[in-house]
Amino acid sequence: MIDVTRRKLKVATTSLAGCFGCHMSLLDIDERLFALLERIEFDRSPLTDIKHCGPCDIGIIEGGICNAENVHVLHEFRANCKILVAMGACAVTGGLPAQRNHLDLGLCLQEVYLTDPGVAHGMIPNDPELPLPLDKVHPLHEVVKIDYFIPGCPPSGDAIWKFLTDLIEGRTPKLGHGLIHYD
């Protein structure tokens, strides 16, 4: 449960197999960011550039799970966050990256790196620095337990604001007509 005393809540955010559009939308709450920052402080997040998250009240994740690194980050968030939120279509459903799910990964890699007409002397990258792709893209809830979902591609700034204020005030978040949408 969220502590509703005035202690600032720790919030971590990240983008996995997403496009950062949801983070852009978070910034779309505009001047309400100031009000938000009265109540929360960011831990690991692209906004702080903190690389690993410590214990947090809320973790907000954009994007689905498409590679090994996504899995590590998701596990880190689940291990550290009391409440984990899937934000946006990709986190909730797999989204655009999951459109490859009915294709064989091997054929995808071959097409992109070896046989595409624009490729010369191609090879499938095998640098250990690069995370390996999973054979299928998964929404977050298929890999760890997720507590809340904010659909939308991206969810509007208003929807994110409504959701976060509900959560921070200790109410079960409810978006209602106009704020809940899947596109």
Partner: peptide, 13 residues
């Protein structure tokens, strides 16, 4: 789920 990618890249690190 990484098996296919390991096979395609020849990685096993």
């Amino acid at each position: 789920a990484l098996h296919r990618a390991r096979k395609m890249t020849g990685r096993d690190d």
